[in-house]
């Protein structure tokens, strides 16, 4: 009996050491993955925050050499473009997702699914060029519409795909319970299945907005940018990403600072949207 104890202790000691090492490895690797994120965040905040002021949110860009000025027009423009894009892409995406999940059985649905998969991987610059060719060139003008369409084009397949996947998580016996209650299929889908998936759908919507909010490439030759307030949806539209872009590549130190402030603002926007998504999921978590 006595001679057995040390072996057991040794084995268990070795196991503990191994366990510790693995844990350490996992923790440090995930730490490494977070480093770039924190660096970006730190740098943007450090350079962007000092240039932020009330003026920055409310005024037009100042001419070169003049101090002050802001990105009020770009902020408003960005919000309008995002809003329009959401109005187009979210309903279409949700209904497309409903089709794929609830009706999508045949060959047609399979090809829709295939196209959606392809569309999610189209590079955003290609989306921008496509909208340029389809909208900007015929209308002979950059416009808020074109920018919104480019964003919508990126959001739509993502919305469709996530909606389909979310609805498929709803167990079939819930659908049957709805039908057994004498509800027509569309009512059952809208008011039982979709409604029951509301928290997940809202999250998907917010995340898809946050995902495109910072995209620059699709706006470069669609919304284009504008140094004045947006003057109608068919005019070139000011927006944060292209404004930041043109300031960042300018030779003026003061514009660089404004670019950082704009970048900080953009980051903040995306961050706030994500925060809302989190908060919503958290609040809805109890009543799944």
């Amino acid at each position: 009996m006595k001679s057995q104890t040390p072996i057991f202790v040794r084995v268990s000691f070795r196991r503990k050491v191994k366990n510790f090492l693995m844990l350490f490895l996992i923790a440090s690797l995930s730490g490494v993955a977070l480093v770039p994120l924190f660096l970006v965040f730190y740098h943007v905040v450090k350079s962007g925050f000092p240039a932020l002021s009330w003026n920055f949110f409310t005024s037009l860009p100042a001419p070169v050499g003049e101090p002050g000025g802001g990105m009020g027009n770009a902020l408003v423009g960005s919000l309008i473009i995002l809003g329009l894009a959401s109005l187009i892409a979210i309903p279409l995406g949700i209904f497309g997702g409903i089709y794929l999940s609830e009706y999508g059985k045949g060959k047609f649905a399979a090809s829709v699914r295939f196209v959606v998969d392809l569309l999610t991987s189209v590079p955003s610059i290609v989306t921008g060029l496509f909208i340029y060719a389809m909208v900007v060139a015929p209308m002979k003008s950059y416009s808020a519409w074109a920018g919104a369409l480019a964003y919508a084009f990126m959001m739509l397949p993502v919305m469709m795909k996530t909606t389909e996947e979310i609805l498929k998580l709803m167990p079939d016996h819930v659908r049957e319970a709805g039908l057994a209650l004498g509800l027509s299929r569309w009512k059952m889908i809208l008011f039982i299945v979709l409604r029951g998936s509301r928290p997940a759908i809202v999250t998907a919507v917010l995340i898809s907005i946050a995902r495109v909010a910072g995209e620059t490439a699709p706006l470069l030759f669609t919304a284009f940018g504008n140094r004045f307030w947006l003057d109608g949806l068919s005019e070139p539209a000011p927006n944060l990403p292209t404004q930041i872009y043109s300031y960042a590549i300018s030779p003026f130190e003061q514009w660089h600072q404004q670019a950082w402030a704009g970048a900080f603002l953009l980051l903040l926007m995306v961050f706030v949207v994500n925060l809302f998504a989190r908060a919503y999921v958290y609040r809805a978590g109890g009543r799944k």
Partner: peptide
């Protein structure tokens, strides 16, 4: 749909509508 308004059903697994 009309028939199911006359003939209700209870399933093996309790299945309340989620989110309601």
């Amino acid at each position: 749909v009309e028939i199911r308004s006359q003939i209700g059903m209870v399933f093996q697994k309790p299945n309340p509508f989620p989110g309601m």
